[in-house]
Amino acid sequence: MCGRLFAPRTKRQKYCSKECSKKAATARVLQAYHDSHPRPKRVCPVCGREFVNGGHHYEKYCSPECRAIGRRRKMAARLEPDAPPVVTKPRWKPKPEVEKICPVCGKTFVTTYSNKKYCSKECRDREMSRRLNEKQKRARRERHE
């Protein structure tokens, strides 16, 4: 949880302290909740882009730019009900999708993030665990030399 190196006191010890153990348990419960309650996909009324709600269930627009455009349209409609709609384009441009290969499992995945390396959290965690084990082995070897 915290990223600190520690020497386990028992074979089953996974965390350095009770605080980290509690944080991990909380994270597992939250993850289980989010897995069983997926966020609904919505369509932005301004640009037509499909998006998943962030932290709030009531989000209507995909971005702050679209929200500003939506507000301007709403205000214009209130001031002049018979006026034509305000036509403005959002500054948002979709990110290009990049196909990558996960270095852990070898699976091909598509992402819009240029710096993403792993296909899933599990693969990322597996790689971080492997690196930590190598670091601990090197430290042990140096101590014995």
Rank of each mutant, 00 (worst) to 15 (best):
A24S: 08
S17M: 05
C105H: 04
C62H: 00
M75H: 04
K74R: 13
S36C: 05
F109Q: 01
C62W: 02
E59C: 03
F51T: 01
H56T: 05
R141D: 08
C16N: 01
S63N: 05
K137D: 08
E19K: 15
G55V: 06
H56R: 15
S129N: 14
R91I: 06
H57D: 13
S114Q: 13
G54S: 13
R124A: 07
A7H: 14
F51I: 00
K121W: 09
R4K: 15
T112A: 13
P94S: 11
R138Y: 07
R141T: 07
V29Q: 11
G106M: 06
S120T: 12
R126E: 03
D125H: 10
P81Q: 08
F6Q: 09
R138V: 07
N133K: 10
E65Q: 12
V46K: 00
G54Q: 09
H34K: 15
C105L: 05
S17T: 03
D82E: 14
S129I: 10
P90D: 03
K95Q: 12
K74F: 06
Y118M: 05
A7S: 15
C66I: 00
V104C: 08
K22T: 11
A139P: 00
R126S: 01
R131P: 01
P45Y: 00
R72D: 01
K95Y: 12
K14A: 14
E122Y: 10
E134N: 12
R4I: 12
H34Y: 15
N133S: 12
P38F: 05
A76W: 00
R4N: 14
P90F: 00
C20S: 06
R49I: 02
G55Q: 08
K22M: 08
N133M: 12
G55T: 07
T111V: 08
Y15I: 03
G70I: 01
C2D: 10
A7M: 14
A77T: 02
R73L: 00
G106A: 08
V110N: 09
Q136H: 11
C66D: 03
L79A: 14
E19S: 14
F109W: 07
H37Y: 07
E127P: 01
R71T: 03
